[in-house]
Simulated assay, not measured.
Amino acid sequence: MNSQYKPLDFDHLVALAQTKPQVLERYLRLKVNQIINAAKPENRIHLRRLQFRIDAVRYRAKTPLAACIKISQMMHDELWCLKEVLDGSRDSVNHPGPANTSVTDNSKRSADKVIPLSRTGRFKA
């Protein structure tokens, strides 16, 4: 059936969610699998693991809103981890060791604007 590969518009998705949620779920699974299969082979395992975690959160949540909040918290935790990695790499540039003496003087750099992130706690699925 060729129609299952055509993207659906928002109104059609809303109608499916209200009348046939199981059909919408199958359609979303199909699209997720298409995206994962189109990814680079070295990224597919990571994407499948991530989708497994998302599915587990959705399955365990009592309501769709609760699932959305938990998945959002999971995304914020990953963003926080990325921030920590980036801050660590910035520290290594600001405080070079004896082997890295060719780093430019930070006083000549323009001041960067850093957006502070607050951490409320690690995600627990």
Rank of each mutant, 00 (worst) to 15 (best):
K20F: 05
D105Y: 03
D11N: 14
K70I: 00
E78I: 06
A66Q: 13
A67K: 04
L79M: 09
K62Q: 14
P64C: 00
R58Q: 08
L24E: 01
L50Q: 09
T120S: 10
D77K: 03
F10H: 06
R58S: 07
I54R: 01
L82G: 03
P7I: 03
N94Y: 11
N43F: 13
L86Y: 10
A15V: 04
M1Q: 12
Y27S: 01
P64K: 03
R53A: 13
C81N: 14
V114Q: 09
K40S: 14
V114D: 06
K83R: 15
M1D: 14
Q73I: 06
K31A: 04
R122S: 14
S118H: 11
R44E: 07
L16K: 03
L16N: 02
E42W: 04
A66M: 08
N33C: 05
V32L: 10
S3A: 15
I71K: 00
M74H: 01
K20V: 01
Y27R: 04
P96S: 02
V32I: 08
S72V: 02
D87P: 03
K108P: 00
F10D: 05
A67S: 06
R90L: 14
M1V: 12
I35D: 08
D11E: 13
N94L: 15
M1K: 10
R29L: 10
C81R: 13
V23L: 13
R26S: 11
D11C: 05
S107L: 08
R49N: 10
I71E: 06
P41Y: 04
R90M: 13
I35A: 12
E84K: 15
V14K: 09
D77R: 03
I115V: 12
P41Q: 12
T19F: 05
L65R: 07
V93L: 15
L16H: 02
Q34A: 08
R122K: 08
K108R: 14
A99L: 11
T101L: 15
V103Q: 15
A99G: 06
P21W: 01
G88E: 08
A66I: 09
I71Q: 04
H46L: 15
M75W: 06
L13Y: 01
